[in-house]
Design a protein around this nucleic acid. Structure first.
Lengths: 85, 85, 85, 85
DNA sequence: TCAGATAAAATCGCGC
DNA sequence: GCGCGATTTTATCTGA
């Protein structure tokens, strides 16, 4: 094959594969770094007196679609009342 | 401070809370961006003919190797410090 | 069925829900009991002179070995099935 | 030493250690079995039409102390109103 | 939509 | 008793 003068198909696949793996691993390191940064902000908030569990919930609620939130609450109430709670 | 006249300890420092929420939301947006970037690389790899399921598994195993090495180092350190007492 | 006359599709089947909740709660109690048993064994080991931190790490590494082997088997299966297509 | 006729201290420690490890691993297998059982019940509930996410929340709320639950809600509202949400 | 994999959040246990 | 790290549990996401 003509390509064999330069590289075999296997070699191409191999280096291509390595390239993908490296790109993914590098991006994932960055992602983990951000997760740590976020954790640091929560720690800072905690040190200032905020309750991080509530803070997490607040942020989750903000990011939640309003309709979805209400639907969730409604269903929750329905289940709880069915249990007599 | 002036605010202390009107802010009871039961109230939350609203502007401080807003600041924390904004910082977290911004970092989280970046994190989500990276998650999307990672997905794009997987898509690109798939388009080049790689099986993403296999690719994910390869990367998972590499990561487990790393974790395992680190765990073993930790165990060694523990043993050594236990012997040093 | 008679109940269908008075039960809309929007309502929940209360007795069925109760049954599921009870089954889950009972199984969870058993689970918590086992967690306590495990803790007792660690306490016993500690009283016999073993360092529980090291013991936990040893067991964690054994478990990781197992996971790693299984992951590798999965990867092999994936490769083989990919080649078989 | 007298014991050396039968076993060395190292052997005793070794078999004792093995015994602890085995007991813990066996109990943990049982624990994992129960976790799987619980998951099966959730699956069954899901197949019957229940929303497992809500179901989990319902069970969590039931197991929560009433005072704690109300305190949580109050603080959540406080944070949300501080953010003007 | 579903299971199975991955990531995030909450809880637990230890040491200071 | 409180923070910190490890574990467990919950939720999200991906691919079939």
């Amino acid at each position: 094959m003509v390509e064999e003068i330069i590289t075999s198909t296997e070699e191409v696949n191999s280096s291509l594969l390595k390239s993908f793996v490296e790109r993914i691993e590098r991006l994932d390191e960055e992602r983990v770094g951000l997760v740590e940064d976020i954790k640091s902000v929560y720690d800072e908030a905690k040190a200032t007196g905020f309750d991080t569990k509530i803070l997490r919930k607040v942020i989750a609620i903000k990011s939640m679609d309003k309709d979805k939130r209400e639907e969730f609450e409604t269903l929750l109430d329905l289940y709880l009342s069915a249990l007599g709670e």
